[in-house]
Amino acid sequence: MNTNSNTYTIVYATVVVIIVAVLLALVSQVLGPRQQANVQLDQQKQILGALKQDISNCNDPAALYFSLVKDTLDVNGHPVYVAEIEGEQKFVLKLKGAGLWGGIGGYLALDKDLNTIYGANFNHESETPGLGALIVELPFRQQFEGKHIRNAQGEVVSVAVLKAGTQAEGQEQVDALSGATITSTGVSDMLKANLAEYASFLNELPEAEPEAEEVIEENQTSNQTEE
């Protein structure tokens, strides 16, 4: 058989491509639900991380997640996870931004005063291992705990990520990672931009009112927008 004729070449190429396409489609179909579950579990683990839960020895993070996170609100398409830890209500906001090589993201847990940071967790797609990728590690994340996202006047001003030794004006700050300036700036910008996205949630909530009523109110607002 002449394996160099045009007809043979075209038929061969077609058959190979069809076989590969069918194979990959099949694998994608079979593994799809499992991958979806992984993505969801990963998200739950990250939210647990922002809520300062140690899940390294936890057998069933999903169960822990559902025992802590009571409700999910929607603020203009951005989720707010309402969790309860030792009787205290916490609000977890989702963050999304850009690092050096690719996207970065994270979750910011706020106390019920919507000012004090309870915990923070970050993730990244492709930051440099050992440099920018250190934003996911505890030493960096723990700096955020107890910081305030509002200034003395109660305006939401975010928290700056700055080189040690420099002073932020009118807002609180944490130390940037050395050797990872762009990633650090990315975290800083991400916090600022995302907190602005949540402005309606952060500013509408009257601090004096009990949180439970507010949750219902929030739900009503989101229902109304849907209608």
Partner: peptide, 9 residues
């Protein structure tokens, strides 16, 4: 890559 995403996320 697909297998890793499913079994070693």
């Amino acid at each position: 890559s697909e297998v890793l995403k499913a079994f070693a996320y």
